[in-house]
Design a protein around this nucleic acid. Structure first.
Lengths: 179, 179
DNA sequence: CGCTTCTTTCAGAAATTTGTGAAGTTAAGG
DNA sequence: CCTTAACTTCACAAATTTCTGAAAGAAGCG
């Protein structure tokens, strides 16, 4: 089932995966370009690509790459690194990517909680609507706590499966946090 | 801090909450109309409104309500019910709404897993890229399992907080599952 | 220091998404 | 059955988003 000479990757197969996986991410709410860039990085052997490589493989303009990368790095899903002594930048998915994505989800939830607290207060905690919102709020607070312990369990589980402890990589409280 | 006569709700305050909360949902990827309808239902005292009421409060056309409700009910976030002996339909947020929403998230994850499995296979499980994807896959499988037990813990937690056990409400494996 | 190479920003074209009016469909009530 | 109230679907207009080319902005390297 080996294709090509065994050394070169089957560009066709890579591309097919990139597009199907990206499509799923888009359907879940991610921007198209960002999804494609992310999928491409994920399926690259190095786990990192330069702007030019991305532009070529995905057939998009450098500007498009730039925008996608800005989105992804705000969501902490890729890291940018400079090849030492070169103007060329590389974008990398690191092992912590999903941890970071979920941490960001957490930021989103926190904003929801803020809105809900205001709602409870302005509608009155003793009205039926207020009680319903208070319950919703409680649910999110619960989830928030769970996320934390869940990621801890993942770290453990991961080591069991793969041995290596993932790179440390500071999760940082993080920006807006869209995705 | 009571406003109005105490019986009528402060329409202004409700509207303000609806719009701010909806805005947060939109930012997290939900369609605008769906978010507004959902927020309106959440902040209604009954937890249910008719199409006409929604159209009036949100100043949108019946067609808009129809579209939003279709989205929400596919995502299992609202239930539709018929007032017996009337052509009027009511849309209701039930206690299980978040459970349902997360169940749906689960469906999304399953689709991601499918794409990833194909990716691992077509790129080769022994290539660096293949290994990276396999790890991602493992992460999602882990999350999938966690979601299940998490919701169980929520049920328990919820009863502690509020006493009442939420309505049963069949979660159903569910359709596409956008949100 | 200026040249060259890469990246980002910006204004606008293109494509997609969203929301509406109007016609169509379903079902209650006479 | 026919009427009428309510919801849905559909085609299109409007708004928004996405992507690009061009120009401006950094940063290595001579």
């Amino acid at each position: 089932m080996e294709r090509m000479s065994g050394t070169a990757r089957d560009a066709e197969a890579v591309s097919r995966f990139v597009e199907t996986f990206a499509a799923q991410l888009v359907e879940a709410g991610m921007q198209r370009m960002a999804a494609r860039v992310f999928a491409a990085l994920l399926s690259s052997d190095e786990g990192a690509m330069s702007s030019a490589e991305l532009a070529e493989q995905l057939r998009i303009s450098p500007a498009g790459v730039s925008g996608a990368v800005r989105y992804l790095s705000q969501a902490h899903m890729v890291a940018r690194e400079r090849e030492p002594g070169s103007r060329r930048e590389r974008y990398r998915v690191h092992g912590d990517q999903w941890y970071a994505a979920l941490t960001n989800r957490d930021a989103v939830i926190r904003r929801w909680e803020g809105a809900l607290r205001e709602g409870v207060e302005s509608l009155g905690p003793d009205t039926p609507a207020g009680r319903r919102m208070a319950e919703t709020l409680a649910f999110f607070e619960f989830i928030e706590g769970e996320l934390l312990t869940m990621m801890e369990r993942w770290r453990v589980h991961r080591e069991q499966l793969f041995g290596e402890p993932g790179e440390p990589g500071e999760p940082e409280p993080g920006e807006p946090g869209e995705f």
